[in-house]
Amino acid sequence: MTEFEPKIVSFLCNWCSYGAADLAGVGRMEYPSNIRVIRIPCTGRMSPKFFLSALSEGADAVWVSG
């Protein structure tokens, strides 16, 4: 059996972590491809509804980053 590859739903703030992800891309940096990025306008947009529905619909983890 192949190694377990988790699906991690990530909620990234447009101005902080999303920018950092963009910069990482521009810099051609390598990182694991397990994350699925969802851009939110600000971490203040985050709601418990989001991560609960992500998890119940099959995500292995949720990562919220401002």
Binding site: C16, L23, L55, A61, V62, W63, V64, S65, G66
Partner: peptide, 9 residues
Amino acid sequence: RLQFSWISS
């Protein structure tokens, strides 16, 4: 299962 972090752009 739920993680938080803070990263500047």
